[in-house]
């Protein structure tokens, strides 16, 4: 699980082009949206595509993202339970 969390942090930084942010800057429990990393709705779409492409998880209802993308901790847990890749 720890490796998956680190992997997710790296992917998020790369996919969302988060300049000046390193893996070490993101805590597992930090909110990804709003006050935390400050991601927005376009980032949510990028993360949905990333889940599909890298882990084979298709989010049929984009509203699910609100829960799944709460933090790295929650995201990693969801991926570990639902991944097909």
């Amino acid at each position: 699980m720890e490796a998956l969390k680190q992997e997710l942090k790296s992917k998020i930084i790369e996919v969302l082009n988060l300049e000046d942010i390193t893996v070490a800057d993101i805590n597992d429990e930090d909110a990804l949206f709003g006050d935390g990393l400050g991601l927005d709705s376009i980032d949510a779409l990028e993360l949905i595509v990333m889940l599909d492409k890298d882990y084979g998880i298709k989010l049929v209802d984009p509203k699910e993202g609100k829960t799944i993308f709460k933090s790295i901790e929650v995201m990693a847990d969801y991926i570990a339970k639902n991944r097909v890749k």
Partner: peptide
């Protein structure tokens, strides 16, 4: 690269 799948919004926008 992705065989017409997994298209992300940012570069399109």
């Amino acid at each position: 690269d992705n065989n017409e799948e997994f298209l992300t919004p940012t570069s399109f926008i």
